[in-house]
Structures are given as C-alpha cells and as structure tokens.
Design a protein around this nucleic acid. Structure first.
Lengths: 97, 97
DNA sequence: TCTACATATGTTTAATTGTTCATATGTATA
DNA sequence: TATACATATGAACAATTAAACATATGTAGA
C-alpha cells in the first residue's frame, strides 16, 4: 500500500476525476451521450459561449475522454469509449440515491 | 436533453467527481480499500498532517463516500459502500491503459 | 478533576482554474 | 484571393480550495 507505483496511478486517477468534476464539462460529456455533436451545437444546446466549449473540449480531448473528426468547417466530438459512459453512469447511480 | 431535471443531477454528479478529483482524497480513499483505518493511521501511512487528513475526511464524510465509528479515543473510517469502490475501480481501468 | 492522547474545526494564504474577451487558425465558396 | 463561417488559442481576472497553523472538543485513565 502507498508504494511509489500506486502513487503515480493514484495521481493520474485524481487527475481523471478532476476532469469529470466540473459541471460544464459533465454537461458537455452528457450532451454527447447519445450521439456526436459539433462545437456550435453544444454551445447552443447548453447555452455556453463557443470559446468556453472549445476550451473545455480541449481538456476533454487531452484526457482522452472524447474523440473528434472534422467534416468541412465543423468538428464533431463524441465520447471516446465505453469507459467514459460507464464512469458517468456509475456516478449517476450514486447521486440518484 | 439538458432539461432542468438533468441540470440538478449533472451538477451533483460534477460535485461528486470533484471530491474524487484530489490526489490527497483519492489516496485516503484508496488506503481504506481493504480495511477501516483511524485518522492517525491514515496520516502516518500517507505522510500527511493530522489536520489535513481530518479536513479531507470531513469532505468525504459529507459526500457520503466514507462512514465511521468511534472506538475509545479513535475514530475508524471506511468506504461507505460498494459504489465508491466501483467508481474508483472503473477509473483505475481507464488510467491503467 | 487533571493530564494526555485523538480528532475536529476556524482562519489565512498560496495556488489552481473556469470564464471572458480578443484574436488567430482552418475550411469552403464565390 | 477575398469573405464568411467554425473552431482554437492566448492572456487577464475572479473565484475556489487545499494546506498549514493554532486551537477547540472529545475521551480515557490516574
């Protein structure tokens, strides 16, 4: 317990949860729960500025929580994998009690 | 999507993840993964001040992530339920890739 | 009740971070 | 290549918060 190996992993784990730990980012993630969306769609849907959404998407991208593809002038974002969905769902269960 | 009902839940969800999103708190939670520990044990194990541990335990307590019982002068803390373990494990999987 | 030990809490400070505003980059079309 | 639209990025500011320090509360035993 508390070996140096764990230290690194636990640090990364905290960093991961930190990304989920902001309501703007969670809303953005949740908006993509069913299907991909482009930046502007997210901004309009959640009533956020384009800049704000873009900044947060960068963080989500860096953390590998979302992936994206460009199509013409738009960039479509979606959840990176099932882990992301699973983590959110698991948290939901705890919160909804 | 983005209904007001969701808004509240998503806010709570972010608040929940925020609690996991600090390396000190994650270390504290992880130290209790196998068995309960008293405040001093945690402080010594993780090389933290008693004050710091106590402050963080308060936050974990408020968020219902840990429970506790008093035995003489000591207070023993443990993970509140399997959800907590599940959320951490799920995050671990993502991080360890 | 006095002392020692264990834990909790209040306050201050330093550091982190989300948002805003301004601007840059990228893409398509006339 | 000039213009418009979509997205990204840089910098400054305001708000949040973890840690440190001091102190208070709680408990057991002499």
């Amino acid at each position: 317990m508390a070996a140096e190996h764990d230290d690194k992993i636990l640090y990364d784990l905290a960093e991961l949860f930190k990304v989920f730990g902001d309501s703007t980012r969670i809303k953005i993630l949740y908006s993509m729960f069913e299907n991909e969306l482009c930046v502007n769609d997210i901004a309009k849907l959640l009533n956020l500025s384009q800049s704000s959404v873009s900044h947060q998407l960068r963080i989500l991208k860096t953390s590998k929580l979302v992936k994206f593809r460009r199509e013409g002038k738009s960039v479509y974002y979606s959840l990176d994998d099932e882990h992301v969905r699973a983590i959110i769902s698991m948290g939901m269960e705890h919160v909804e009690e």
